[in-house]
Nucleic acid binder design. Structure first.
Length: 228
DNA sequence: CCCTGATTCGC
DNA sequence: GCGAATCAGG
């Protein structure tokens, strides 16, 4: 069986779709591929969202081929023709598709949690990485590294979220994106990073601050208070 | 390269 | 019906 689109799954798809999440992200949250998301969305007749590649032909209104043929389609057509032609010659027209090897993809569905409340969790404590490429650390320092003019961070929490040596994995970015989308939360870290219990405060932060009132009070200590 | 959604078509 | 492969654009 391919996949079981349960009512709940469909409902979640619709919901996320309406929320404007990208297909790939919906897929990640549902532990399916973006292709599955798009395909299902179409079959469900969900309102298509602005595509990066809208049909130019439609926009121009000129006599352009309404739809573009995929390479596969062309290949197939040719293959069919050729096959038909060579049929008379009893030519075996071997396709290298016999027992398509390729890499057996492990279903991601069973691997990870089907769907959890968007809890921020420490991501992959271990795991070898590719030292070759290391793009700029986009991940914002979630730890109290802020330093507003009139104040400076005094007490640091146990440990700032570990600085990443390499580019943050997709998962991390997704989590960040999700958080941003769903609204800011207090970024005060609690617990030891890397351990299962590590998490961020999550409370509603003060306007313009990464922390809630409680933690902002700890994070920001007036210089004057310090010097005097 | 990364990403996006759209489409086709073998299964 | 499903979704991988592919396309096409940013």
């Amino acid at each position: 069986m391919a996949m079981e689109w349960t009512d709940e799954l469909i409902a979640r798809l619709k919901e996320l779709w309406e929320q404007g999440l990208s297909t790939a992200e919906i897929g990640r949250q549902l532990s399916i591929t973006k292709n599955a998301v798009v395909g299902k969305a179409h079959r469900l007749g969900l309102p298509p969202r602005p595509s990066p590649i809208r049909n130019k032909a439609a926009a121009e209104g000129s006599a352009k081929p309404a739809r573009t043929r995929t390479r596969k389609a062309e290949a197939t057509s040719e293959a069919v023709e050729e096959k038909a032609a060579s049929a008379a010659l009893a030519k075996p027209a071997e396709k290298k598709k016999a027992a398509a090897p390729k890499v057996v993809k492990v279903s991601p569905a069973a691997a990870e949690e089907p769907a959890k409340p968007a809890s921020v969790k420490a991501d992959r404590p271990a795991g070898a990485e590719k030292p070759a490429k290391a793009s700029a650390p986009k991940a914002a320092a979630a730890a109290p590294a802020e330093n507003p003019k009139a104040a400076e961070p005094a007490a640091r929490p146990a440990a700032p979220v570990a600085q990443r040596k390499v580019a943050p994995p997709r998962r991390v970015r997704d989590t960040i994106d999700r958080t941003l989308r769903q609204g800011p939360t207090c970024q005060w870290p609690l617990g030891d990073p890397g351990t299962p219990d590590f998490h961020f405060c999550g409370a509603t932060p003060l306007p313009g601050k990464p922390y809630c009132a409680e933690h902002a009070a700890i994070a920001y200590v007036k210089i004057r208070d310090r010097r005097h």
